[in-house]
């Protein structure tokens, strides 16, 4: 194999009593890759991250990091760096002590550990703040200290547990860019957990969409958006209109909707992205009626009543709005419908 595998899950299950948090997951993450675990709360994404960190041990299955089986190893005996949601900076230690804590614990001489910590702090843009206590730093600075602390020991893998949830909405775009840039600069393998699909699309090489302890789909951001495998993935990443109908001889039909669709005949479900639906006033097929038209700044959003479903459609600001109550004809490009499995 050309690319080295950094992390491998083989049939990993984690149970808490009778509740299954992670259900027989198999997955491998290449070295230098940033992979995001994405899903609604309770889907097992954080548990999966903690299984890599060693903060949870699997009930069954094998976790490998850098080619070694670490399934029953304590967190302290793995080489991972983790950035916590709350940052988890030690409030009684200053920035330098926080960053040099790991090397010191692992037996590096104090002076050497501090020198190394200085170096990282400088690279990460925290020079001059080394004697401050965490309580004397801004939220953004605290987050950088948390990152510095996690990468100072050159971990086999860098873990992020919803690192942006404590950052102002305005700053998120900037901070996630920094994280991505840093990960690439240091050539780190990173695993990132979030419930925010936009964040996941923006930072990841690959995304693992999780649902009820299982993997719903793995793929690049573009794969997932453009070719979702299931109605769950289609709906969770971006907005999707899910339409049920029948396929006969390569065409999908539901009421007056009739579009080409590959695959076997029989009952089927398709996903249709709102921005792929073109609206024009007047009667036609498939037909619909505008129920509402909402101004959202960047685009118009329509709710359309049709014979087969209630559709969400979004149109650019450059088009003139269509008043509610107007009968419309829908134009659906041939590539727009994506066949998805139910759930």
């Amino acid at each position: 194999m050309t690319e080295e595998i950094a992390i491998e899950f083989a049939n990993v299950t984690k149970r808490y009593g009778s509740a299954v948090a992670v259900d027989a997951i198999t997955l491998s993450i290449a070295k230098g890759e940033l992979v995001t675990f994405l899903g609604p709360s309770g889907c097992g994404k954080t548990t999966s991250l903690r299984l890599i960190a060693g903060l949870e041990l699997p009930t069954s299955g094998v976790v490998q990091i850098a080619g070694r089986d670490v399934s029953q190893r304590a967190a302290s005996e793995r080489n991972v760096g983790m950035v916590f949601q709350s940052y988890a900076l030690f409030p009684h230690m200053n920035v330098l002590e926080n960053v040099s804590y790991g090397p010191m614990i692992r037996g590096v001489a104090k002076a050497k550990a501090r020198a190394h910590a200085y170096e990282i702090l400088e690279q990460i843009g925290l020079k001059g703040l080394d004697m401050r206590l965490p309580s004397e730093l801004s939220g953004g600075q605290q987050q950088r200290v948390a990152v510095a602390r996690a990468i100072v020991q050159q971990p086999d893998v860098l873990l992020f547990d919803e690192p942006l949830s404590n950052v102002d909405a305005k700053l998120r775009r900037k901070v996630r860019g920094e994280i991505r840039e840093l990960q690439k600069r240091f050539g780190l393998t990173a695993v990132y957990v979030t419930h925010d699909q936009e964040e996941a699309l923006a930072v990841s090489d690959r995304i693992v969409v999780m649902q009820a302890g299982r993997i719903a789909q793995i793929g690049t951001p573009r794969d997932l958006y453009e070719r979702p495998a299931s109605s769950f993935v289609a709906d969770f990443i971006g907005d999707a209109n899910l339409i049920s109908g029948q396929v006969t001889a390569g065409r999908f039909r539901a009421a007056d909707l009739d579009v080409p669709l590959a695959g076997p005949d029989g009952a089927a479900q398709i996903s249709l992205r709102p921005e792929r639906i073109i609206l024009s006033a007047g009667e036609g097929a498939p037909s619909g009626r505008v129920r509402s038209c909402t101004y959202l700044g960047s685009h118009w959003e329509y709710e359309i009543e049709t014979g087969f479903a209630e559709l969400l459609a979004s149109r650019p600001m450059s088009e003139a709005p269509i008043a509610p109550g107007t009968a419309v004809t829908l134009t659906i490009p041939e590539t727009a419908p994506i066949r998805v499995t139910d759930i």
Partner: peptide
């Protein structure tokens, strides 16, 4: 916050060191 102890563990500190430091 429990994650402070977890942070200490991921940085290589076992139970004893985490407790003490």
């Amino acid at each position: 916050d429990r994650s402070m102890e977890e942070a200490s563990q991921t940085m290589g500190a076992g139970g004893a060191a985490t407790l003490r430091r």
